[in-house]
Structure formats: C-alpha cells, structure tokens
Design a protein around this nucleic acid. Sequence first.
DNA 1: GATTGTTGGATTGTTGAACATTTTGTTGTT
DNA 2: AACAACAAAATGTTCAACAATCCAACAATC
Lengths: 241, 241
Amino acid sequence: MAPVNANSETSPLRGSSAAPQGGPAGISRLRVAVPSVATRVASELRLQIAEGVLPPGTKLKEEALSEELGVSRNTVREAFAELASERLVVRQPNRGVFVASLEVSDIHDVYAVRRAIEVSAVRGGGSPESVAAVRAAVEEGKRAAAAGDSEGLGTANQHFHGALVAMAGSERLNTIMSQVLAEMRLFFHRAAIDGGFYQDYLADNEQICTALEAGDAELAAERLLAYLARSEAHQTAVHTS
Amino acid sequence: MAPVNANSETSPLRGSSAAPQGGPAGISRLRVAVPSVATRVASELRLQIAEGVLPPGTKLKEEALSEELGVSRNTVREAFAELASERLVVRQPNRGVFVASLEVSDIHDVYAVRRAIEVSAVRGGGSPESVAAVRAAVEEGKRAAAAGDSEGLGTANQHFHGALVAMAGSERLNTIMSQVLAEMRLFFHRAAIDGGFYQDYLADNEQICTALEAGDAELAAERLLAYLARSEAHQTAVHTS
DNA sequence: GATTGTTGGATTGTTGAACATTTTGTTGTT
DNA sequence: AACAACAAAATGTTCAACAATCCAACAATC
C-alpha cells in the first residue's frame, strides 16, 4: 500500500545506517542530531497523511506497517504516539489508531486557535525582518499564481500564515501553528478543488502585508480577522455539502 | 525515590486490574475508557513533576523507573513520549530524558502563548455559563485567601485562567492552556515563596471578572493584558536573581 | 425473525530479554 | 596535563511471547 521501500531488509528507515556523518575527508564539527527511527517513521506517515495517500479514517495497523516499513512494532507504536500528540491520528483504546478525520465542529475549533495566535502575533507588530519574511511569502504566492501552480499557491499561503505567527518570535507559538497547519492539510484536499479559491487570498495577504509594512498592526489584525472569518465560512460550506 | 507503590508484584499501575467499572449496582452507560498503563505512568510522573518531587533537570532513567513502577521499559518509554509532547520532559538523543527546566527566555515564550489564547478567549465574550465559571474561580480564590491557604490560592488562580480560556469553547485551546499551565507549575515552586504575591492577583481577577459580567469584553481583555505583563515581569524578576 | 449467547480469530497492550550504538568514566601512557 | 584505548552504563531498537479486548460469524433462544 504505502510506497515506502521495496525490500524491508535494507530499509533506509532502519537505525544502523552506514556512513558516519561527515564523509571521507571532512570531520563533521556540529553535532548532527540524527532523528531516531521512530521519528523518521512518524515523518513518513505524516507525509503520507498530508498528501492524501492515507485518507482520513484509514486504520493504521501496527503489524502491517511494521513490516512494510521494515521496523519493529514497538517503533511504529512510538511513531503513533508522536502523531497522536499532533492530532493527526486518533487512538481508540484496544481498537487501533486511525487517520484523524475532522468534523465540522473541528473546523470551528481549528479556526479558534488560528484567530488566537495569528491575530496576537500580528498585533505585536514584529521585527522588520519578520515582516520581510511575510512579504516574501506574499511574493511566493504571486509567483505561483502567475505560473498557474495551484499546489504552490496553497503552500505559499501556509508559508504566509506561518510567517505571521513567526512575527511573535515564540517557539511555542510556532510549533502550535505548524501543527494546526498540518491538521488543516487534512481537509484541504477537498477544498483545493475549486480554482478561483486562492485568488481572493492573494489580495487579502497583500493587504495584510502592506498594513504591516506601514506599521499599522491594528489594521493588519482587523484584515486578518476578516480573512479568517471568510476562510472559515468557506471551509464550513465546503464540508457541509 | 518515587513513593509509588511498595511491591512491584501487584502494583495497581499494572494493566490487568480487577473490578470492571460501574460498581455492583449501576451500569455505566458511557464508555469508560480505562487509561492504558503507559497513560497512568505518564500521569504519575506528571504529578510528581508538578509537585516538585522530581525537580527540573532530574534525569529519568528508564530502567530505574521501570522497576520502581513495576512496568516494562517499553511502557516507560511510551510515557516519556507523552510527557515530551507536553514539554514537561526533554529528550536528549542517546542521553536520556530530563525533567524540563525553563530558562528565562521560556518565561517570555510561555507568556506569549498565554497572551494569545487568553486574550482571544476573553475578547470573544463567552456564554453566560462560561462567565459564571470564571466567577466561581474568583470566589474559590477568595475562600482560599480567607483560609490562608496559599496552596489553594495558586490552584484557584490556575482555575481562573483556565476558565478564561474555556470561554472560547475550543477543545484545542483548552488542551493548549492546560499544557501551558502544567509548564508553569515547573517554576512556580520558587515563586510561591513570597506571601503577598497572590494578593494582588485576587484583585486583578475580580476586576477582570466584573468586566466580563458587565459584558465589556474589551475592558476585560485590557485588564488581562495588564495582568499578564505584570505577572511576566514578576516571574522574570524572580528567576533572574 | 429478531434478539441474545457463544466461539474463534485478529489486533492491540504489555512484557521480558536480547543486541547494537552511543555516551561516559577510567585507566594507562607519553 | 593531555590523549588514546578501553570498559561500563544507558539508550535505541528488535524480537517473540502472552494477556486482554474487540469483532464478525454462527448457534441458540424466545
């Protein structure tokens, strides 16, 4: 099912990798924290969930995954714990873990979080560099739109909102935001269908960004709130059909 | 070290517990999800961390804990994963897990989260019942103050701020807040020393609550922001001595 | 015929032991 | 004192087993 690696014998997910980092000549000075096998399994699953390979509601069986990925059942279990803490999968005791499927109520809930942290970050103003990052995300979106890259438009939009939160300079807010964005990818598949959808966003982002560059954080926050309200309404509409 | 259970033979942390839930007479209608052993281990550790039995920086050895609690090493490991996702412990690859110790920068970070979600929740206004819950927390604090219960004063304050966030009616915001509060307990031990510390809080909470009851969410948010600023300054001062 | 046991297989929860890898402390040498 | 080699301890991961739970199919009952 999951096109990870053909042979589970020498799967690159396995821990005991060969070459010690640094190559033949140079010695790696900085400590490169090699992610654990469990972490890599979690990343792999996270990717497949985000890409829709594993659609919401899919049951993830421990044994099947463990042989498919060439890792032990316990390791799969640890990966599940990581994903469960991010709400990407749901654990039903003695039943198994399932790819999270968001209800309509979850949409409102997620937007409540976004309203809280995005608006707060924007209201704070942020450093010139952080605002520049926001601008960069806006331009990224424009380029994608010009190229007709609907996919890239979506990721640019996520970069934009991530950059907004980054303005607060808070590590915790950043991780919360990235988790929320990951959750949103769960039901973006359906929403990404209609074409002119992102077009409006581009204009919104531009306006929010100019307000920030003008130093008017309050105006930017206002526009952001309006955007979020419309976005939530749109998502709700799409998912109540 | 950890006063959990004397004999690891019949430790109540073990999975195969005896009595099926519901007691002799009544039948439990709702599905009572019996927490797994790993979850219970995590709860136990969470408690000991919150109470200061395991002070910040303490190294948690897998094998020691596993025999101490009468569970397997793998189970301890799962509990660690849960606590790590809550930032209560920090995992250093190949080194072990340690009870998180917050730096001064973390204080600012935590307050950034609080500013975001508490203020957002308060600005939303909230239902009459949720405001009533806030009032209840205020009264709880008054009673604790009257009884000279410094401990109870602290928990009442946490209930107050939890109730503020609960006004938003968002499951996700609630869990974020409870995790933040758990983090704060990590460095509240030192701060709880000075006596008149909580006295000011009481007045603040009262004023925020009355503003909410009067329907003036904006005023409440303003007062809350002021409170958070002072609280952060206080905590920072205490932890830079 | 629909509801209520019963049974067996499949899956998860947990354990215990093993081994590889990394870290760390120690020892011995220069 | 600095340094390399080595031994001990702890973690990361695997594996195999068993208990507990769930589920679907089937049998039994009214």
